[in-house]
Computed example of a mutant assay.
Amino acid sequence: MSDLPSELRYTKTHEWVKDNGDGTLTVGITDHAQEALGDIVFVEAPEAGRALDAEEACAVVESVKAASDIYSPLAGEVIEANATLTDTPDAINTSPYGDGWIFRIAPADMSALDALLDAAAYEKVVEDEA
């Protein structure tokens, strides 16, 4: 998993979080998660304006194999859902850390980002699951 972006933070439930540098965060699922799911055919992202608690199930990603809940890594308010996933949900398969992002959030407490896993700690979580 050497291609894991080191600038991102991660959760044990396989979400990644990018600090956008403007008080907002972008959230998606990791390459490991999309690979485990297989071909993604549908994404239900949370709507803008929705308040989320940390670790709350807030989105669903469906593949040909299974449906999987996506959890909010931090408490806050959804500011944008990735509308392109409606027509091209497979963007998560082809670009999990790029065009395949799922939603953006304005966190209630930005310092909570520090409690998430760094790339090395996330790699250990994946290795321990194997």
Score class of each variant (00 low, 15 high):
Gly49Thr: 04
Ser72Leu: 01
Ala54Ile: 12
Ser63Ala: 00
Glu62Thr: 08
Ile70Lys: 09
Gly49Pro: 02
Ala59Lys: 01
Glu56Lys: 03
Ala57Gln: 12
Glu62Trp: 01
Leu52Tyr: 11
Glu47Leu: 11
Ala66Ile: 11
Ala59Met: 06
Leu74Ser: 06
Ala57Arg: 10
Val78Ala: 05
Ala54His: 11
Val60Arg: 03
Val78Glu: 02
Ala59Arg: 01
Glu56Gly: 12
Asp69Tyr: 12
Ile70Gly: 12
Glu77Ile: 14
Val78Gln: 01
Pro46Glu: 01
Asp53Thr: 12
Ala66Phe: 06
Ala51Ile: 13
Ala51Ser: 14
Glu56Leu: 07
Glu80Thr: 11
Asp53Pro: 07
Ala67His: 08
Gly76Met: 02
Glu55Gln: 15
Ala54Trp: 11
Lys65Arg: 13
Ala75Met: 03
Leu52Phe: 03
Leu74Asn: 03
Asp69Ser: 15
Asp69Trp: 10
Ser72His: 01
Ser72Arg: 02
Pro46Thr: 04
Ala67Trp: 05
Glu80Leu: 06
Leu52His: 11
Ile70His: 06
Ala75Thr: 02
Ile70Met: 10
Ala67Ile: 07
Val61Tyr: 05
Glu47His: 10
Glu80Ser: 13
Pro46Cys: 08
Arg50Met: 15
Gly76Ser: 00
Glu77Tyr: 02
Glu77Cys: 10
Glu77Leu: 10
Ala75Gly: 14
Val61Glu: 05
Ile70Asn: 08
Glu47Pro: 14
Pro73Gly: 06
Ala75Asn: 11
Ala51Pro: 01
Glu62Arg: 00
Glu47Ile: 05
Ser63Arg: 02
Ala57Cys: 10
Val60Leu: 13
Pro73Cys: 07
Ser68Leu: 09
Ala75Ile: 00
Asp69Val: 12
Asp69Gln: 14
Arg50Lys: 14
Arg50Thr: 15
Asp69His: 14
Ala66Gln: 14
Glu77Ala: 13
Gly76Leu: 00
Lys65Ala: 04
Val60His: 09
Pro46Gln: 04
Leu52Lys: 11
Pro46Arg: 03
Val78Lys: 00
Ala48Glu: 01
Val64Glu: 03
Lys65Trp: 11
Tyr71Lys: 07
Asp53Leu: 14
Ala75Ser: 13
Pro73His: 03
Glu62Gln: 07
Ser72Thr: 06
Gly49Ile: 05
Leu52Trp: 12
Glu55Ser: 15
Val64Thr: 14
Glu47Asn: 12
Ala48Ser: 12
Ile70Pro: 10
Ala51Trp: 11
Tyr71Ala: 05
Gly76Asp: 02
Glu47Gly: 13
Lys65Val: 05
Gly49Ala: 08
Glu62Ile: 05
Leu74Arg: 06
Cys58Ile: 02
Val61Gln: 07
Lys65Ser: 04
Ser68Gln: 13
Ala57Ser: 15
Ala67Val: 10
Ile79Pro: 10
Val61Thr: 09
Ser63Val: 02
